[in-house]
Design a protein around this nucleic acid. Structure first.
Lengths: 157, 157
DNA sequence: CATGCTAAGTTGGCGAAACCAACTCAGGTG
DNA sequence: CACCTGAGTTGGTTTCGCCAACTTAGCATG
């Protein structure tokens, strides 16, 4: 997954750079589980049904990318083991998950209603994602256009 | 990619359902290119450097999922061909791309500045994604909690 | 009317990634 | 010291992605 839009070896597109670490199968679902508070190998494995070798690989990549942090823990009467907790960078993926969640709810409904709701941590009231202008006013998705920024200096029609 | 959180055969998690169609390599990058206005096989191919057989497969899946629409076109002096344009469901993926973009800009910077900016289609002013409460007030990402909705009726600690 | 051009794909072979079951490993308990 | 548990490895098979080469359909040109 390289080349294409860019001229050099560095991927200029932030989406592509995000996908370098999140684009492999299971990566985002592991982050989703971590958001629910799962931290342990066996929990991820049981919840997701992912093969153990793949899970080992993904946890390692997410740690390397700074999304998860390996941290020792000890249950009483057990030996010391490692668990995986979200870092700030990992928690910053909430909008990505929320956006996917909202799209899936809308365009690929399960028939059971939404499985996850994003809420205010204190009041518990539901939140939604929206585009805001600098003055705080909201814009509809249909009013949003994508334009090139400084990182995109390729010539194209 | 099934089972895990659910008991039956329908995937209860909207994120997993979104990933069923968007989670394969190249799918989201094809949607990104479509947002830039690319519509043709050769354009996707040249921009992304994706193998033609994979591109055929992904375009077909995106069409089946209702994200892209196949539409005939004809350049003068050319034969009729097909192009691929975003549907409403496809354009509704803007928040997903914007969220990934913002995360990549912040946590995996390229050193060239952002390659894409999401703007108001009319005024051109830059927009950002934010969580809003029902009254329109904004919440920080760190104030967001994920809770179970009606679609998640699994018992778990 | 054969020849070539172009966009949009197929086809076939190969290496990497994912899957699955079985096995290992380290420490703690009875 | 036999056994249990969580956290992984290992080996073999299937699927996926990559690449180069080939095909196909219509129009245009000689």
């Amino acid at each position: 997954m390289d080349e294409g839009s860019g001229t050099g070896s560095v991927e200029r597109c932030s989406i592509a750079r995000s996908l370098e670490v999140l684009g492999l199968k299971w990566s985002l679902l592991i982050v989703r589980e971590a958001m629910w508070g799962r931290t342990r190998f066996a929990e991820f494995r049981a919840r997701l049904g992912v093969a153990p070798d793949v899970l080992t690989d993904r946890l390692g990549r997410l740690v390397d990318a700074g999304i998860l942090e390996r941290r020792p823990y000890r249950e009483d009467g057990e030996r010391e083991r490692e668990e995986y907790v979200l870092t700030d960078a990992g928690r910053a993926l909430v909008p990505v998950l929320a956006a996917m969640n909202a799209w899936g709810d809308e365009y690929r409904p399960s028939g059971f209603g939404p499985a996850a709701i994003y809420t205010d941590r204190e009041t518990g009231e539901p939140l939604r994602l929206a585009f805001l202008a600098a003055d705080g006013s909201e814009r509809e998705v249909s009013d949003v256009a994508v334009v090139r920024g400084p990182g995109a200096l390729m010539a194209a029609p």
